[in-house]
Amino acid sequence: MEVRTIKVFTTVDNINLHTQVVDMSMTYGQQFGPTYLDGADVTKIKPHNSHEGKTFYVLPNDDTLRVEAFEYYHTTDPSFLGRYMSALNHTKKWKYPQVNGLTSIKWADNNCYLATALLTLQQIELKFNPPALQDAYYRARAGEAANFCALILAYCNKTVGELGDVRETMSYLFQHANLDSCKRVLNVVCKTCGQQQTTLKGVEAVMYMGTLSYEQFKKGVQIPCTCGKQATKYLVQQESPFVMMSAPPAQYELKHGTFTCASEYTGNYQCGHYKHITSKETLYCIDGALLTKSSEYKGPITDVFYKENSYTTTIK
């Protein structure tokens, strides 16, 4: 009895394709271990004539594949690729409408935090270190965002349907971005203890939790000093293409032309909904596939993004 075979390709990165001759009487799992086709788990399936010449994702289970996976995804987590594939199996079914010149995501599976993050990423200057993220990001900007969303979920250790947080998501993504040249110098002034300067680099240099107003941050924000008295913390120097200011959701007025974009969060910790506000020729609110415009805006804002380049204080 002759062994019926077909020729397929296996890959971990969709760049390096490895030619395989597979036995049609055995499952993919018996031949390769966990195997995925377009995100779908085909591990328990036997090869079919229609699979001839198709590319299958496999887990990096030998040295060659491990090197290829690390170079593309910059992670050695053995569960990463499987999590990416199972997320992709959902995100490829989502709709990605162009809204006001940006790629958004039609609401499904509690994905409003991903839509808000995706919209924000198209408006701030950011370059990702893992080629996987950078490639998928370019495709997302062009309207094909399924891979990018699935990668975000995998890097953030999230599953489809789980509630997510924009600030946490951005923080994970910033860790995989090139923020080497970003720098922030802060000064804390206390009447009792004097003053202390701190220099922050990388992710810490672009994120701040405690106030939404970048102007206020430049002037000074009140913080408790270690001595128990009130101290003032203010920005001395900022070198970065953008800054992200966050605070627990509270009524906040966004003035046209003073910011790049913002995240609105309605609801409580267990259950809520994100919308995205962007400042173009007027203010726009993007909620999944829905767009509304207004000249002014007041609502429960939790993150505001500002364009920056270089700032030095005039406070002496």
Score class of each variant (00 low, 15 high):
L114P: 05
T292Q: 14
V99T: 09
V58W: 08
V203C: 11
W94D: 06
A146L: 03
Q175P: 09
V58P: 04
E71I: 02
C225F: 00
P249F: 06
C193I: 02
T116R: 00
F174Y: 02
A40Y: 13
Q98V: 14
T260Q: 12
G299F: 06
F56I: 11
C261A: 07
T312M: 15
N129S: 08
Q270I: 08
Y28W: 08
L81Q: 05
Y84R: 06
S171C: 14
K218A: 03
L153R: 00
T292Y: 07
P78M: 14
G202R: 03
K54P: 05
T27W: 00
V304P: 02
L37M: 11
H18A: 08
Q31P: 06
A154F: 01
E264L: 12
C225L: 04
K293E: 15
Y72K: 09
L235M: 03
G33S: 04
N309Y: 01
N111G: 05
L126C: 12
A231Y: 07
E2P: 11
G39V: 08
Q222W: 03
Q216C: 07
A87Q: 09
R139L: 11
G143P: 05
L212E: 02
Q195M: 15
L254K: 00
A177H: 03
D77E: 09
S294Y: 14
T75M: 14
A247W: 02
V8Y: 02
F70R: 07
C182V: 07
N187F: 05
D165A: 13
D287N: 00
V166D: 05
V12D: 06
Y306L: 04
F148W: 02
N268H: 15
F217V: 06
E2G: 14
K201T: 15
F80R: 04
A247G: 04
Y172K: 14
S213M: 02
F70W: 11
A117W: 01
Q20F: 07
D303F: 01
A250F: 08
I45K: 14
V67N: 15
S310W: 09
D109G: 08
Q270P: 09
K183M: 10
T19P: 12
K92T: 07
G272P: 06
Q20Y: 10
V203N: 04
P224F: 12
Y306W: 05
T198N: 08
P130T: 06
F9E: 07
L212S: 04
T11E: 07
